[in-house]
């Protein structure tokens, strides 16, 4: 019994082991890596993508996907900046409206998928180009700067020495963990991904669950976009291009099945930190960013292979 439990624990934590391994390699090869300031820096760099990846985890758990998150980040970041600076709604007016816009666009994703019966891949791929286009239209292709200190604080400020995005990530992760583990909605997210028809026959509406997860993903993308804007002191029209890939890679590295029904927030965080630690460590070692991409891809393959291998050992 205890042996099977040990194997099971190892199986569930195999990606965590990979994260530790990568960390150890960098700790040995770069003296700067294991300093408090660098680790906080890693956390800061990872936090935004991790927040977006948490929303992505919800959609993937229902056997869906949200490819539009990178564009939604740019659009909502630009909206937050533009509304507070140009339209004079103030920092919190702009941020609130941008978050609502993210949720609204997520809802449109959900409606296309649920009511329009479109595959999530297709619906959110369309949204990817639409939202990017709207970003360019809204910004007229130019950065929006001139944010006030309150806005910038959310991206660059600290509380008790901890960067604000890291605090927000912690809060979001705890909420997401509790929702998935302890609430009906969370159970229904797993159930919808596990077997939609059974879920429907149990009197639960998988359609409503699916709508909700795309709204959640829209919200976390918007939040990520706003934090990115705050960190960069301005909204860039081509911000977060390609970030949807990292946002998908994080939960998948963390053991979330693209077929739905299996996965956890803890896994997603570990996955996101593998990505973050890798970039940070490679930067410290002075590896060219061209090679970094190659190395990242290879590490993804190895991580997923190890995960598959340990699962097969069951």
């Amino acid at each position: 019994m205890s042996l099977t439990k040990l194997v099971e624990t190892l199986r569930r934590s195999s990606v965590f082991v990979i994260l530790l391994l990568i960390g150890m390699i960098f700790a040995v090869s770069s003296p700067e890596f294991l300093t408090v300031s660098n680790l906080l820096n890693v956390a800061l760099q990872t936090s935004i993508i991790a927040i977006v990846a948490i929303g992505m985890t919800f959609t993937i758990l229902t056997a869906g996907i949200d490819l539009s998150v990178g564009s939604l980040m740019a659009l909502c970041g630009a909206l937050a900046a533009g509304l507070s600076v140009r339209q004079g709604l103030g920092t919190y007016g702009g941020i609130t409206l941008a978050l609502l816009a993210g949720m609204g666009l997520g809802l449109i994703n959900g409606l296309l998928i649920v009511k329009g019966d479109m595959p999530p891949f297709v619906a959110t791929l369309a949204m990817l180009t639409i939202a990017r286009g709207l970003t360019l239209v809204y910004t007229e292709g130019r950065p929006i700067a001139g944010l006030d200190q309150k806005f910038i604080f959310w991206g660059t400020g600290q509380l008790l020495g901890i960067p604000m995005p890291v605090i927000l990530l912690t809060v979001i992760a705890i909420i997401a963990f509790i929702v998935l583990r302890y609430t009906r909605f969370g159970l229904y997210v797993y159930a919808t991904g596990g077997n939609e028809e059974t879920t429907r026959l149990a009197g639960v509406s998988p359609d409503r669950i699916k709508l909700a997860v795309y709204v959640i993903s829209g919200f976390t993308a918007a939040l990520g976009g706003i934090l990115l804007t705050a960190r960069l002191w301005s909204a860039q029209p081509n911000a977060a291009v390609g970030w949807e890939l990292d946002a998908i890679a994080a939960p998948v590295l963390g053991g979330t099945s693209l077929f739905g029904g299996v996965g956890s927030i803890g896994g997603t965080l570990v996955g996101a930190f593998i990505i973050g630690v890798l970039s940070n460590g490679l930067n410290l070692l002075g590896v060219s960013s061209y090679y970094q991409q190659v190395i990242k891809g290879i590490v993804f393959i190895l991580a997923v292979m190890l995960d598959l291998f340990t699962k097969r050992q069951r």
């Binding site: 159970l187 077997n195 028809e197 879920t199 029904g261 299996v262």
Partner: peptide
Amino acid sequence: ALIPYLTVGQNIFLGR
């Protein structure tokens, strides 16, 4: 029509 990655209890009381 059980959901494979949920527990027996979760399956029995799904929706209730």
